[in-house]
Design a protein around this nucleic acid. Sequence first.
DNA 1: ACTTAAATTGGAACGGCGTTCCAGAGATGT
DNA 2: ACATCTCTGGAACGCCGTTCCAATTTAAGT
Lengths: 239, 239
Amino acid sequence: MAPRTRKSERRTEALSRERIIEAAVELLDTAGEGGLTFRALTERLATGPGAIYWHVANKDELLDAATDAVVAAALATEPAGSPDSPRDALNAVALGLFDAIDEHPWLATQLATQFSRGPWKSVTPRILESIGRQVRALGVPERRWFTVATVLMHYILGAAGQNAVNGRAHGPGVNRDEFLGAVSTAWKELDPDDYPFTRAVADQMPGHDDREEFLAGIALILAGITAVPPPPRSHRARR
Amino acid sequence: MAPRTRKSERRTEALSRERIIEAAVELLDTAGEGGLTFRALTERLATGPGAIYWHVANKDELLDAATDAVVAAALATEPAGSPDSPRDALNAVALGLFDAIDEHPWLATQLATQFSRGPWKSVTPRILESIGRQVRALGVPERRWFTVATVLMHYILGAAGQNAVNGRAHGPGVNRDEFLGAVSTAWKELDPDDYPFTRAVADQMPGHDDREEFLAGIALILAGITAVPPPPRSHRARR
DNA sequence: ACTTAAATTGGAACGGCGTTCCAGAGATGT
DNA sequence: ACATCTCTGGAACGCCGTTCCAATTTAAGT
């Protein structure tokens, strides 16, 4: 068979796992979730698929690594000795994730799908740890650590992902206010018999400030912590 | 050009959007998220792609429809006049979603990605309405409806999705307890300096009952409702 | 009953994706 | 100089969602 022709010269700057992950993040940021393909990656890195597969097992691992890198960076900001209260520190962690998801909208989907597959891998402990430390600092009894941290984590990721979507462009010239207004009016056209609640909240949606609403949710959960906790386990008020 | 040869006879039972969605759900249930392909669908329905595309715009719409159908069915159970307290009714809604996600594990991913794209379409108001009605019945002041319902929704969907993953097979002969045990031991091998909290909660994870833990999270949020609400809006303590 | 138009079907083909394969170029040691 | 190992990137494979369109069934008009 004919010998393969080698045309281009070898890369000058060596390929590395870090460079690949970095390029993947940039590609996801600029071209969206569907923008990360091995072909786009090979073009951007001026190489071939085999070179990438030498450093990375497959696309899932690459996505995991990109997610982990961005989340780690988001949680690493504000490390130094800010003598804030645990509440403020928790809000800072939450807003850090909020901003990271806002800046990299693909994170929302990626975190969700990563939770739904190999959920307890690298990124989950990272987030749980950051939240959990503040939960512990708040004086929550250890028995309830898991419940409280889990509630906070799910709310933070869910709400941040939701709000990140609101702020994105949904077509040419559609900004956040227009988008939320469109949703609001769409909800007000729902059947009054089937959707009384949704119609009622449709009014208060367009006006609110995202971060404030987000923090209000966290405050609500924290208020639940200080309230009388239900007895240990399987011991709720009965008889 | 040569005339196409027509070999098989036309379907006896007519194809319809409902039949396609039904087949899609079955395919997702049996073969997993990756199991739904147009080729598998054409084989199962004994037809061709064009026939399916006549009834359904594309795969995303099909996934949306499948998700909506399953969620609607889950929320439609327990309609009749059970004179439960709003708390019990809310728990019932939450457990309905919990069970639906447990029975159709692809729902977790699908709901998450659907939230991250056209988030305010059909399925979101459906869930928000079911939760919101109970929030209203609980006597929550209208100003806080959106916050409370949103917190509950994000927690319910996040935690239910997470727990659904735990219960699934992750390889041959790996059941829930083994899986959680493996996660627990993996967490206990994390760096004690970097992950003190995660290591601490690793112990209490394998033992707990899923539903009880799930409901404990909801109870925590509900406890926050009755606690003193933070001042109206844009009025938090500053300066 | 015959004709005609519209609704519906399903086979073939297209472009793009993740992935695999492997010849060979650079580096390194002998 | 050679042998060996690391790393590269072009070509090709199989599967995917989707499109195209001839063929067929159904419905309507006469």
